[in-house]
């Protein structure tokens, strides 16, 4: 009987091992992404699945966020007699921050958990091994298609969420101020610069990649039967949300430097 020796302790070693496994997983993703065969049909299927899965929730949440944020901002601006700035504030807030963040968090919950649970279930029921013994690379077929699908689809969902959020906001402004919707949109977009749009696109691409890769990593490495599937889905959501918040801070800071220079 061999006895296992640890470098630090069992838990610290396990933590570093997990970090190393995640690093290897991401590296494998980039290595295999550009090698044949390309499963285009599966990629399109996944894009469609992700879009359909998240669309109703994003529509509802985006719309409510637009209305609620407008309602909450109005009294503060009214204190300074600046309620006419409301459309501009909403434009900046929704396009630069709320749209990407709300979509990212919803997709982390809806899509990330779905990917984690689906791949986790495939892992514990030996479906991934079945692909491997059929001479099909399961990493390419399952992981690469899903990660690219989230990376490509979530930016579209972010723009959709921003659009629905602004719609909610404009309806609120129209209901309260009886101002024209066209004026609302003109004011909302007047303060948005090209760099703001790029920032929003970069955020959505990074969040999409994060959701796909975290969900796939947790699902693909699920263990311990059905309990492991639940754990993979749960960890996929928690880890993706945590990373999205960290990425939000980093990207905002980077774009502040870009604007400064």
């Amino acid at each position: 009987m061999k006895t296992r020796k640890y470098i630090f302790s069992r838990r610290i070693d396990a933590y570093f091992q997990a970090v190393y496994e995640a690093y290897k997983f991401v590296l494998q993703f980039w290595k295999e992404s550009f090698r044949r065969p390309f499963h285009i049909r599966e990629l399109v299927n996944q894009c469609f699945e992700i879009g359909v899965r998240a669309l109703p929730l994003i529509t509802l949440t985006g719309f409510i966020v637009g209305i609620v944020f407008t309602k909450q901002s109005r009294p503060s601006l009214e204190n300074f007699g600046a309620q006419s700035w409301l459309p501009s504030l909403m434009g900046i807030a929704i396009i630069k921050a709320l749209g990407p963040l709300v979509t990212g968090l919803i997709c982390a919950g809806k899509v990330g958990s779905g990917i984690g649970a689906e791949l986790g279930s495939m892992k514990v029921t030996e479906q991934i091994e079945a692909m491997e013994v059929s001479a099909v690379n399961p990493f390419k077929f399952l992981v690469i298609t899903r990660v690219w699908a989230t990376t490509l689809t979530i930016p579209v969902l972010v723009f959709y969420c921003s659009f629905v959020g602004l719609l909610g906001s404009s309806l609120n402004v129209w209901a309260v101020d009886s101002s024209s919707t066209l004026t609302f949109y003109q004011n909302a977009f007047s303060t948005i610069t090209f760099v703001d749009l790029i920032e929003s696109i970069v955020k959505s691409i990074v969040y999409g990649f994060t959701i796909g890769i975290v969900g796939s990593f947790k699902g693909y490495n699920a263990t311990q039967g059905t309990r492991g599937v639940g754990k993979a889905a749960n960890q996929a959501v928690v880890s993706a949300m945590f990373l999205i918040f960290i990425e939000e801070i980093v990207i905002v800071q980077i774009f502040r430097w870009i604007r400064f220079f």
Partner: peptide, 19 residues
């Protein structure tokens, strides 16, 4: 992979693709 095409593996759980 070429060798695996010549081997059939029937899993205990059947491992049919759910989707």
């Amino acid at each position: 992979d070429a060798l695996r095409l010549r081997i059939g593996f029937s899993f205990q759980s059947s491992a049919l693709y759910d989707g």
